[in-house]
Nucleic acid binder design. Structure first.
Lengths: 118, 118
DNA sequence: TCGATGCATCGACAATAATCGATGCATCGA
DNA sequence: TCGATGCATCGATTATTGTCGATGCATCGA
């Protein structure tokens, strides 16, 4: 296991993220949040995320992803790095393959920041 | 009322947005989603959103926003345009002032696309 | 041990995006 | 009617990001 997620959403998913609209965010909080949203701000990365989530076993390697998104291997690798750094996916190297997996807690936490009703 | 929101999330907020991870998104859906996330992918825009939500009456004009974010008026105007086009805020011109307001339905819909449990 | 495979990194280039000053259009108050 | 104010748009510049070919490092199977 060589997962290298950098949880930009905070160490503790459950406690880090109050709704965006609950009060004025300071610069740091805004930047951290924006960085995660930026990771989702590309159609290919959004697509990659849905491909991984829908993949058999909930995980996929780069080789499974290049064809569906129609990008080169280095480019897909680059996008996956951004998603990993955002904490939205984890990377697990097993032999030759690097398996990526969606982090539900991160998705939930991010979802929570957009919730307006309590 | 001169609101000009372009609801990129779809005409019907409630019905448009199944979770990102519920199945493989087609190109169009991925692009539409990514465009909205991209609108949130800037710390100033995230901040602007929280400022508006926290403002008195839930609305704010450009002139209320320039100082807090420390950007020029044209730049703030530009950011607000992006947020408006993403459907995350509405614009309402009243006299000299343009009042911006968060669209809770859009936030909720977007929040829903990130939800992994149902 | 060696060729093949999967992947990340690097370097370069092209495309997007952020920012601001200048400007023009309304609207308001005097 | 006129100056002042609020805002959007334009044009230019800089910064950021997406993309790919080339390359190098592991790992696997023969």
């Amino acid at each position: 296991m060589t997962g290298t997620a950098l949880p930009l959403l905070g160490e503790d998913f459950a406690a880090c993220c109050s709704p965006l609209t609950a009060g004025v965010l300071d610069e740091d909080a805004a930047e951290r949040l924006a960085r995660v949203f930026r990771a989702l701000g590309d159609r290919h990365r959004v697509r990659l995320l849905s491909l991984i989530a829908a993949a058999d076993g909930g995980e996929a390697c780069i080789c499974d992803l290049t064809a569906p998104v129609g990008l080169s291997q280095p480019t897909v690798s680059h996008h996956m790095k951004l998603l990993t750094e955002a904490g939205l996916v984890t990377r697990d190297q097993r032999g030759k393959w690097a398996y990526y997996r969606v982090v539900p807690e991160a998705m939930e936490a991010l979802s929570g920041t957009l919730r307006t009703t309590r």
